[in-house]
């Protein structure tokens, strides 16, 4: 028992140092820009870079659009499958897992061939078309996470009974979906939204190959050309990921404390 506990602590110490040292290294490096003293110069340099603000803003916008359109696609689909088409559930679940199986770079390769300027649907022919395509590609990437989060939330509230109750009270479809279902699966929607946010903010492959000025390619560009700014950006990116995951935890905890009453 004692040896076991000692082993556990050793494992945790090794794991923790593996996790923490690179973070410390990054943080330390990001403060080293001024010779001989720690400073926030690298951060200042990053924040004053107009490209940082533009790409960050672009990716934020993309993330928000991805979340909105993704949820408009995923929530009704998950609902419909649970309510009316339980027999296709395995198929839908399999499809939602495909983006984990097919590497992102393969998917975007397909887009570039299928939607190039000489095809029937020349999405890459115009800026707005490419932006749309990028948003759809982000929706594809986040599909496994969004669908799982929403579907789990729907299982918890038993949508069928909820719908029948609403129908028996005379509610119409839009009312049922937006007043009964959406609010009750909010925890799932929010968890899916935050993880999507984290994915989109750091995504590199899709944006780089579609040539859009997103945050991921910008990070890569800075990494190739500057010394200290990349570390500052890594710290910022880590903070964003941490924030998203923290919000997911918060949402699920909030949901737990509310659900017994609901």
């Amino acid at each position: 028992m004692k040896a076991q506990r000692l082993g556990a602590w050793i494992a945790i110490a090794i794991g923790a140092s593996y996790f923490i040292i690179p973070l410390l290294g990054t943080l330390e490096f990001s403060l080293r820009m001024r010779r001989g003293a720690y400073s926030f110069d690298a951060y200042q340099s990053v924040f004053s870079d107009i490209q940082f603000r533009e790409t960050f803003g672009y990716s934020m916008l993309m993330a928000v659009l991805t979340i909105i359109f993704g949820m408009l696609l995923v929530v009704p689909t998950a609902y419909w499958v649970r309510l009316r088409l339980p027999q296709v559930r395995p198929v839908v679940e399999f499809v939602t897992l495909l983006p984990l199986v097919i590497p992102a770079i393969v998917i975007v390769f397909g887009y570039l061939r299928l939607y190039n300027s000489s095809s029937i649907l020349p999405l890459t022919g115009s800026t707005s078309g490419t932006n749309t395509l990028l948003m759809f590609s982000y929706m594809t990437l986040s599909l496994p996470y969004m669908y799982r989060a929403v579907d789990t939330a729907m299982r918890a509230i038993d949508v069928r009974t909820l719908t029948e109750a609403a129908e028996s009270l005379g509610a119409k479809w839009p009312t049922i979906l937006f007043r009964c279902i959406f609010p009750n699966v909010m925890s799932g929607v929010l968890s899916g939204a935050f993880i999507t946010f984290a994915i989109v903010m750091g995504e590199f492959t899709m944006a780089a190959l579609l040539n859009r000025p997103a945050f991921g390619p910008y990070l890569q560009l800075v990494g190739a050309n500057k010394a200290y700014e990349p570390s500052a950006l890594a710290v910022i990116a880590f903070a964003i990921t941490w924030l998203s995951m923290g919000l997911i935890q918060l949402v699920s905890r909030f949901q737990k404390s509310v659900s017994p009453k609901a």
């Binding site: 990001s30 750091g202 990116a237 990921t241």
Partner: peptide, 26 residues
């Protein structure tokens, strides 16, 4: 772990360069 499993991509490369690169912390 929830955070770190999603902390991939370009920033992760920066983190390891700052740690184990030629002038990294370690």
């Amino acid at each position: 772990s929830g955070v770190a499993s999603n902390f991939a991509g370009v920033p992760l490369a920066f983190a390891f360069l700052s740690t184990l690169g030629r002038t990294g912390l370690v």
